[in-house]
């Protein structure tokens, strides 16, 4: 029907349109607890493109591309900064009156969850109106939190109880308390929600948990593991060992360590960037971020950020 050349032009235009729909890069938002700021890293360009001032001692990060919002827990000022990711401006501050650390947004973008670790509370907030919809008590010291892909369950690493709490997001009722290793802090899920991971700081293990039958395997990692993240294909788990300056790479199916990557001092926050197949690690002791190639496990770039970067939570947003 069309001459070959016309078809070529058409498909070229279609690709161009499609490309506009697809994320072109990913941004990493690194919370710098020592200087009260967020460093914005463009992962494609491998550089800091912006620095956003927030309130006192930012730790936890949760972001949503759909809402164009970033939420940051400022533990020492006891509040949450709301940032418009289109303008990089702080547009609101949500008071928490406690010690907000862990924070997560539901995949349906309807709820923001905040863990208040000294007051043992978990808050459910409307991310656009900032109204507190519900709150519950989760003892003791709720730290890392994450929501299931269907937005129905909230998983909480309950640090001082050595447990994972599973909450029903409808009413914040407790579905399950599961014993893990000592002092679970960071928490992660596979993208299909079938496997849950916790970094157990004091016994130097990671728990790998089936979210259907709650079967659990513990894998020994390095000294003081803090945070965990899974690759997009759900095959590989990455763990930061804060007192070993390394990242353990675990094959999820066989539950074996397949590599150890040396990074900077005191690695804490870790996320997987599916766009570029990169792993980002914030090195608290070194004030930088390592960008690691997921295939070769080599550090391809080290980016200087602010003082004492934590990057606790889901800190990468695809754009």
């Amino acid at each position: 029907m069309y001459p070959i050349r016309r078809l070529g032009t058409l498909s070229f235009l279609a690709c161009l349109l499609l490309a506009c729909q697809k994320p072109s890069t990913s941004l990493a938002y690194i919370s710098n607890q020592g200087d009260n700021s967020i460093s914005v890293i463009d992962i494609k360009q491998q550089k800091v493109t912006n620095t956003i001032a927030v309130d006192h001692a930012p730790v936890g990060i949760a972001g949503s591309a759909e809402l164009a919002r970033l939420f940051v827990t400022n533990v020492d000022s006891q509040n949450v900064s709301v940032i418009d990711t289109n303008t990089n401006q702080v547009i609101h501050t949500i008071p928490v009156n406690g010690s907000p650390v862990g924070i997560a947004i539901s995949p349906d973008h309807k709820r923001l969850y905040i863990a208040d670790w000294y007051s043992n509370r978990v808050l459910a907030i409307n991310p656009m109106t900032y109204h507190i919809i519900n709150e519950t008590v989760v003892e003791k010291a709720p730290a890392g939190i994450i929501v299931s892909p269907d937005s129905l369950r909230l998983y909480i690493a309950v640090r001082d109880s050595n447990e994972i709490a599973v909450l029903n997001t409808k009413d914040l009722s407790t579905l399950k308390r599961l014993s893990v290793g000592e002092h679970p802090f960071g928490i992660a899920l596979t993208s299909d929600g079938n496997i849950l991971f916790s970094a157990n700081v004091y016994d130097n293990t990671v728990s790998i948990i089936d979210t259907h039958d709650w079967q659990q395997t513990k894998v020994s990692v390095g000294d003081h593991p803090y945070c965990v993240t899974a690759s997009q294909d759900n095959k590989t788990l990455y763990v930061t060992n804060t007192l070993d300056e390394s990242v353990s790479v675990i094959d999820i199916a066989s539950k074996q360590i397949v590599a150890t990557i040396n990074v900077g001092e005191t690695p804490e926050g870790i996320n997987f960037d599916a766009n570029h197949q990169r792993i980002l690690v914030s090195n608290w002791g070194e004030n930088n971020v390592s960008i690691i190639d997921a295939k070769t496990h080599k550090i391809i770039s080290t980016i200087t950020v602010g003082d004492r970067p934590r990057a606790f939570g889901q800190f990468i947003i695809a754009r």
Binding site: G34, A57, V75, S99, W117, D160, W284, G285, R308
Partner: peptide, 13 residues
């Protein structure tokens, strides 16, 4: 001394 600690680690380097 091993169980609980505050939310803001300190550093001297």
């Amino acid at each position: 001394s091993a169980i609980a600690h505050g939310p803001t680690p300190q550093k001297i380097d």
